[in-house]
């Protein structure tokens, strides 16, 4: 399972790097130097990627020509949308560093931080208290 995931990633890299639809044989040949794989293995993984919706394919003659359903950037944008839209009930899967905030609050905090940075003695004192209590 784990290995196949890594293999899927490798094949997707190849397909994103390719400048057009490719056949299974092309992908196998491109990987030949770094990772020699059986034709059927490559075919199986690409079939899997097709069924998972990562690839689309067109029949050309007796074989298929594959291309990515979305570009890498589009997939990344989709993932980030998923990640950022994580609401309270869905948010158990991952932990965000911080949620985004409204512009007004952001401005107010930026202001507060600037004020505190221009008063180094207090900041230093707070750091010391921090050390003592932790």
């Amino acid at each position: 399972m784990e290995r196949l995931g890594a293999l899927e990633a490798e094949l997707m890299d190849q397909l994103w790097a390719a400048r057009g639809p490719v056949a299974v044989r092309d992908v196998r040949d491109a990987l030949q130097s770094t990772r020699p794989l059986a034709y059927t293995t490559v075919m199986t993984v690409m079939d899997r990627l097709f069924h998972k919706g990562w690839l689309v394919r067109d029949r050309v003659g007796r074989s298929y020509q594959y291309r990515p359903a979305l570009s890498r950037g589009e997939y990344t944008a989709r993932m980030m949308r998923d990640v950022l839209s994580t609401t309270d009930d869905r948010g158990l899967a991952l932990l965000h560093f911080v949620d985004t905030m409204g512009p007004a609050e952001y401005e107010a905090l930026q202001e507060a931080l600037r004020w505190h940075q221009s008063h180094p003695p207090r900041a230093a004192e707070s750091a010391r208290v921090e050390d003592e209590t932790s």
Binding site: D99, E105, L109, A112, L113, E125, S126, V129
Partner: peptide, 18 residues
Amino acid sequence: NATGTATTERVLRLVTPR
């Protein structure tokens, strides 16, 4: 909103002496 005030509190907690 709730998350907003939580972030504000988090930042102010860092920069003000405890």
